[in-house]
Write a protein that binds this DNA or RNA. Structure first.
Length: 813
RNA sequence: GCCGGGGUGGCGGAAUGGUAGACGCGCCCGACUUAAAAUCGGGUGUCUUCGGACGUGAGGGUUCAAGUCCCUCCCCCGGCACCA
């Protein structure tokens, strides 16, 4: 009988409408009496999308992965929280407003409408009742409240310091947003500017961010490594050097206290605040001032590339371990941002100090020696962290092994009060101020009398006013909104001005996963009981590009909110899966490279199911993958084959006979279930279902055809839900999304016979079809009597026989 | 330099220490068709004297048996790096 042919464009919208009608994927919060009973509840979350007008392949991969997990869990009897929203503040909308005119708000709303529609066309099983967007007052009101909570606890603060400034985007950037001295967004080289800005004290959490990685057993190693690198913990000591002839003490941080006796000079960063005081009134003052000025005009990149230079200050410090006078220099190879902005220089054992010493003829004294052999520290620094090294020229500490030397010197220093153990971090506090318009206003007022005054919680939200000019001018466009800026001090009622900077958008996305649990709460950012019911997120899925930025900020927020008593957990994301990127024509698929394949185009041609199937069939989801133009054609062709195969099978009666096809179906259930659940592999289940369908076509008269076809449809549902529902219905059933996940019968996993592999000396010599009931002795006998084997055994003695039941026999001669 | 992840046909990739290359793409042959598309069937690692031999970045090792475990090395990708 002839069937209609597979038409995704007819099927897909119909089922999407039905899912919406029947509220198929809406998961309301449990009633208060059931909060906390969450054994069969799971929170599946994918990273919050930025709503550009266009869905891209990265989104398709991300949300289809989540979709498979969500469907799989739901059909296995779990309550699944799977929300969606938009990371809607940010520069692109503002830049679009500058370019095309209009308000960022309107542009953003338009883009959200478009991307939502595209997502709905993908058929993702999302609870749209929980939709949020970070740019709406109902959301950012609470972002502001959380800022105030952090402020109250001393975790938000304002300070003046040298910051990364992007001259293109006309705003400061957090350290995390600078790559190789360039703006992570636009690629322009960043400058240094001294500005007063708002920070979050993430460095207070450096230890927790490292230590509590234990709670993240399921995170990919590479992400943890990146975060560890970023935090950059190093153990050492802080040692105080006294500046001769002044009242000034200068502390330095060193990881090598065992080299203290080798400190032959001292270096301060050009930006060190005490440099002017040290040289004031001295003959060297002019030269030092000139050097500092020159250093400040050089970019970070320039500083690194040039030879190490510096200038003598005319002053000396006293080396506290041996009382020796050593010269103080100012040099820009010492960074103000790390440690104390000053170092003790040990040229014998540090390459940088060595280069500097050679340039200026400063003394080089060896204090570390290998246990055996000689090194010439005059020609090259001896940099080694070997436990076999010993101290030399170090007074009473000489001849101690290096690790012991470290300990002894630190102990002695803390006893006499000149130094102590100290841990240093590379991590800096998170700079959150942005001199841009389209972001969450910082709820702060500046009053001449009262200073920095937080906006009272009851006055939130501080609404973002509409302005007409978004062109960046080095200060926030909000500063031009005079009526908005001028306000009354909440504390004294006098004249005051609002903070005009907005928050980094990473603040918005550092707590959205919490809001999803209780998205319509108008009294508070969330109800803790509800949040503790769903959170932490059981399975988080997203791009590896957020390994440091978003994932570290969100971890910090969660810990801080936990310390504030607002949450009952320390880590936001229990399990993390990072997907690989999509490449096309040799480069990462991206708008800026001009090599995007629009999912929308693909849907128009092949339907959402084929696109979904293809993106996961491409390869292991955690690896980067090259987009193949012919790929979707392949999966589309498979869906056509599935369609025809199932419709033919639908005409056959259901029988309960155990046939080879029934066994194959059970094997496929086992394989698909294990792959999705335990291995988190999404490409191989598709191959397994393809195999099953091929098998059905190979033997369409097998009595198990109908069962096998139903199994194939059921197993493919998380990947291709539209065609699966349609076929399920045509097979005479109701709603497949509500159908329990198929189970397999362990006893049917084995075929009646198997192919016995016969090896001689480990080499494949023959394959024999054998009943699974054959005993070991039978197998050996069969193997030995194979004609191809007897020829090889001729005149030889079998020394050893290995039998792997139901697999192979290996005869060793 | 340090840390992490990789390296398998023409391509994407598959393989709890047990048949290397499942599944798909591409290509070749055939069927259907006036023809084409679609679809269906068959073939497709390399070499071969058609018996086989060789083959998972290179070289060693463990094992009855290694893509898989161990050692040495090469290459590619990512992170960190003037961080004291």
């Amino acid at each position: 009988m002839a069937h209609d042919s597979y038409d995704p464009h007819e099927i897909e919208p119909r089922w999407q409408a039905l899912w919406a009608d029947e509220r198929a994927f809406v998961e309301p919060n449990p009633p208060p009496s059931e909060l906390g009973q969450n054994e069969r509840s799971i929170y599946v979350l994918e990273m919050l999308p930025y709503p550009s007008g266009e869905l891209h392949m990265g989104h398709v991969k991300n949300y289809t992965l989540g979709d498979v997990v969500a469907h799989f869990r739901r059909r296995n009897g779990w309550r699944v929280l799977r929300p969606m929203g938009y990371d809607a503040f940010g520069l692109p909308a503002e830049n679009a407003a500058i370019k095309e005119g209009g308000q960022p708000r309107a542009i953003t709303e338009r883009n959200i409408a478009r991307i939502r529609e595209q997502m709905q066309r993908m058929g993702w099983a999302i609870d749209w009742d929980r939709e949020i967007s970070t740019h709406r007052p109902e959301y950012y009101r609470w972002t502001q409240l959380l800022f105030l909570k952090l402020l109250e606890r001393g975790l938000a603060y304002r300070k003046e310091s040298l910051q990364n400034w992007c001259p293109n985007d006309q705003t400061v950037l957090a350290n995390e947003q600078v790559l190789d001295g360039r703006c992570e967004r636009c690629g322009v080289e960043v400058e240094k500017r001294s500005l007063e800005q708002w920070f979050f004290r993430i460095t207070d959490y450096a230890e927790a961010l490292l230590g509590e990685m234990d709670l993240l057993e399921q995170w990919p190693e590479r992400v943890l490594t990146m975060q560890r690198n970023w935090i950059g913990r190093s153990e050492g000591a802080e040692v105080v050097f006294h500046v001769e002839g002044t009242e000034i003490d200068l502390p330095v941080f060193t990881t090598r206290p065992d080299t203290l006796f080798g400190a032959t000079f001292f270096v301060m960063a050009p930006e060190h605040p005490l440099v002017p005081e040290i040289v004031a009134g001295r003959p060297e003052e002019e030269a030092v001032r000139a050097y500092v000025k020159q250093a400040q005009s050089r970019s970070t990149v320039e500083r690194e590339e040039k030879a190490k230079d510096g200038v003598f200050t005319g002053r000396s410090v006293i080396n506290p371990v041996n009382g020796e006078r050593i010269q103080i220099w100012v040099a820009d190879y010492v960074l103000m941002e790390y440690g104390t902005g000053a170092i003790m220089a040990v040229p014998a054992h540090d390459e940088r100090d060595h280069a500097f010493a050679r340039n200026y003829g400063l003394p080089i004294v060896q204090v570390i020696a290998p246990r055996e052999g000689e090194v010439d520290v005059q020609s090259e620094a001896y940099v080694s962290s070997s436990a076999d090294d010993v101290l030399v020229n170090s007074g009473e500490f000489s001849r101690l092994p290096s690790p012991e030397g470290k300990r002894s010197i630190v102990n002695w220093m803390s006893a006499v009060g000149i130094g102590e153990e100290k841990v240093g971090y590379r991590l800096r506090d998170w700079l959150i101020s942005r001199q841009r318009y389209w972001g969450c206003p910082i709820p702060i007022v500046y009053c001449e009398r009262c200073g920095i005054v937080p906006v009272p919680e009851g006055d939130l939200p501080v609404l973002l006013p509409e302005v007409s000019d978004f062109l960046p001018k080095g200060r926030s466009p909000l500063a031009a909104a005079e009526e908005w800026v001028a306000t009354k001090c909440p504390s004294c009622g006098g004249e005051a001005r609002r903070e005009t900077d907005t928050m980094d958008t990473f603040v918005d996305s550092s707590w959205y996963f919490i809001r999803y649990c209780d998205p319509r709460n108008a009294e508070a950012p969330w109800d803790r009981e509800i949040v503790d019911h769903w959170m932490p997120v059981d399975q988080y899925i997203g791009g590896v590009e957020h390994a440091i930025l978003h994932l570290m900020y969100a971890r910090f927020f969660t810990k801080a909110l936990n310390d504030l008593g607002l949450l009952g957990f320390r880590e936001p994301f229990a399990r993390l899966f990072t997907q690989g990127m999509i490449h096309y024509r040799g480069a990462k698929m991206s708008k800026s490279k001009g090599n995007v394949v629009a999912p929308d185009e693909m849907i128009k041609r092949f339907g959402a199911d084929a696109v979904r199937l293809n993106i996961l069939f491409m390869g292991p989801a955690d690896q980067d993958a090259e987009w193949q133009d012919s790929g979707v054609e392949g999966t589309s062709r498979f869906l056509g084959r599935l369609w025809r195969t199932v419709l033919e099978a639908a005409e056959k009666p259901a029988r309960s006979k155990v046939t080879p096809l029934v066994r194959k179906a059970h094997q496929t259930i086992a394989k698909v279930t294990d792959d999705i659940d335990r291995r988190f592999a999404f490409n191989t289940p598709i191959a397994a279902v393809m195999e099953l369908v091929n098998e059905i076509n190979r033997d369409p008269d097998d009595a198990g055809v109908r069962f096998a076809a139903e199994t194939a449809v059921s197993l493919v549902q998380p990947y291709a839900p539209h065609i699966a529902e349609e076929l399920w219905q045509r097979l005479g059933h109701e709603r497949l999304w509500q159908e329990p996940w198929p189970t397999y019968d362990e006893s049917l996993l084995e075929q009646k016979t198997f192919e016995l592999v016969v090896q001689v000396n480990g080499k494949l010599r023959d394959r024999i079809e054998v009943s699974v009931k054959a005993s070991e002795e039978d197998l050996i006998e069969l193997a030995r009597s194979s004609p191809r084997v007897t020829a090889l055994l001729e005149g030889k003695e079998v020394r050893k026989t290995i039998v792997v039941p139901r697999k192979l026999v290996n005869l060793v001669v």
